[in-house]
């Protein structure tokens, strides 16, 4: 083949910068994962492969409790957030505009727009107020807080799915004597399912990864895995933190890849 000719899309150096970006994005993560398998206590000098830090994390009672709390929190919060988001998405798509719709939209997306630290401080103050009135200091505060900031993440893919859905399918079902509830169960819900699953996964990952709001809302002894790690980072770090991180990374990456595959599938 002769000369490729004039490439209108070419810009000098762009490909180099882009590839450098990909390398730089992944290098720290790869190193972090690599040193979680280090036999020594160093996170810079490679001394050989071992599972030792995974074993040590597994045997660390604090880690185990925090991990279970994180999982429990993420499961409940993503379930609550996704359920609320499905209903909200049904109420904000495919109907004529109504008064207050813009405000509703802003409220649902508000956790995305307000800096996390501000929400965290607001929750700290508000929950402290409730605590002082009721004397209740249990874990419910964390569940409510996580459910709230997960809602917009669950809402986005569900809404996108609903908007892309063919309205005539439901009309056809209604025409064939389906009552509204049965139409929803038999037609809308099955079509919506990939969106719901995607939304739930995003919510799960967001809850699992949250540091700031949890740090401010949690009472003593209510550490999640991320807040436990944040505490550990102040001390001298051993590859045990790398091992915990690697497990969390694996969960997140799996979820995101599944989300990606789900959102790729068209109606």
């Amino acid at each position: 083949m002769a000369d490729r000719g004039f490439d209108v899309q070419k810009q000098r150096g762009f490909t180099t910068i882009a590839l450098a970006c990909f390398v730089l994005l992944y290098t720290p993560i790869v190193l972090l994962v690599m040193y979680s398998f280090n036999v020594g206590t160093s996170i810079a000098i490679w001394e050989g492969f071992s599972w030792r830090w995974y074993v040590s994390a597994w045997e660390n009672e604090q880690v185990k409790v925090a991990a279970l709390r994180s999982l429990y929190l993420a499961v409940v919060a993503s379930f609550v957030a996704t359920s609320a988001a499905v209903l909200a998405a049904l109420a904000t798509t495919r109907r004529p505009a109504y008064r207050g719709q813009t405000v509703v939209f802003a409220i649902i997306n508000q956790p995305l727009m307000v800096p996390e630290i501000v929400t965290a401080v607001a929750l700290l103050i508000f929950f402290a107020l409730i605590k002082s009135f009721t004397g209740y200091t249990g874990g419910a505060f964390l569940f409510v807080a996580h459910s709230a900031f997960c809602i917009p993440f669950a809402y986005m893919p569900i809404r996108a799915r609903l908007q892309g859905m063919d309205l005539t399918l439901e009309q056809a079902a209604a025409d064939l004597y389906g009552t509204p509830l049965r139409v929803f169960r038999k037609v809308t819900l099955p079509l919506l399912w990939p969106g719901i699953l995607a939304g739930a996964m995003l919510a799960f990952v967001i809850s699992l990864d949250d540091v700031v709001i949890t740090e401010f809302v949690k009472a003593a002894g209510q550490d999640t895995l991320p807040t436990y790690m944040l505490g550990q980072l102040r001390r001298s770090v051993t590859p045990e933190v790398n091992a915990i991180s690697t497990v969390l990374l694996a969960i997140s990456v799996t979820m995101v890849v599944i989300y990606f595959i789900l959102s790729q599938r068209k109606n």
Binding site: A84, A91, R95, I107, V114, F126
Partner: peptide, 27 residues
């Protein structure tokens, strides 16, 4: 019906997202 459908999400968000912001202002 849309307000009924919206109520769970709005309630959670009011309690644990935008509602407390007003209390910050008061504080």
């Amino acid at each position: 019906s849309h307000w009924i459908l919206l109520s769970p999400a709005l309630l959670i968000l009011f309690v644990a997202a935008f509602g407390p912001l007003f209390i910050v202002l008061i504080y």
